[in-house]
């Protein structure tokens, strides 16, 4: 077996020792793994802290930016409404385009009410009965939507039978020192 050239110093990591042998002289170069182990340990602790067994229950659309809040209540898997300044999306389907008329008139939004009622009826048919948990809905609103749009969406949910309305937000960690 020929020896490697000077330029190619093999790392014999698989042999049980972190040693590189240079050609020519019998000089052994040791690769110190201690600092790498240190780094990995720090990384491991950080990742263990961020580890979530729940997974991502809610898919946040890239079309909207959720506001931040310090509340603690965990999100549950419910029907999702995403609201931004262009569209109202229910369960991934765009239902209504946000226009000036929509921001100026009325209470609930008829198209949205119809879609939500259909969904509730479908749930009733598939499960046989509905409990209180089935009447909850998650609303993801963009930071920039006006209050009237949010209010109309919430009124539509109420009219369709979704009485429990949860506003999805990004959890904001409290400031150091417990500042409120």
């Amino acid at each position: 077996m020929s020896m490697p050239s000077k330029r190619h110093v093999p790392l014999l990591l698989g042999s049980g020792k972190s040693v590189a042998v240079s050609h020519g002289k019998d000089k052994k170069v040791t690769l110190s793994l201690t600092s790498m182990i240190d780094m990995f340990t720090i990384l491991l602790v950080f990742l263990l802290k961020s580890y979530s067994t729940d997974g991502q229950l809610v898919t946040v659309s890239d079309q909207l930016i959720l506001p931040k809040a310090r509340v603690e209540k965990k999100v549950e898997l419910k029907l999702d409404i995403q609201v931004n300044n262009s569209f109202i999306v229910v369960d991934g389907d765009p239902i209504v385009a946000v226009t000036d008329d929509l921001l100026n008139s009325g209470n609930s939004i008829p198209e949205l009410v119809t879609r939500l009622r259909d969904h509730m009826e479908y749930s009733r048919l598939t499960r046989g009965t509905l409990n209180e948990e089935d009447t909850k809905i998650n609303i993801q609103g963009d930071v920039g939507i006006p209050a009237i749009l949010l209010q109309r969406v919430m009124a539509s949910c109420s009219e369709a039978g979704y009485v429990g309305q949860n506003l999805a937000v990004i959890k904001e960690e409290p400031a150091e020192g417990g500042e409120v």
Binding site: L47, G55, V71, K73, S158, Q165, N166, L167, V169, I170
Partner: peptide, 15 residues
């Protein structure tokens, strides 16, 4: 498995 952005909810009373 890590989640760097945690989504939480605010429960609203009836509007």
């Amino acid at each position: 498995s890590a989640s760097f952005l945690e989504v939480v909810v605010i429960e609203m009373a009836q509007t």
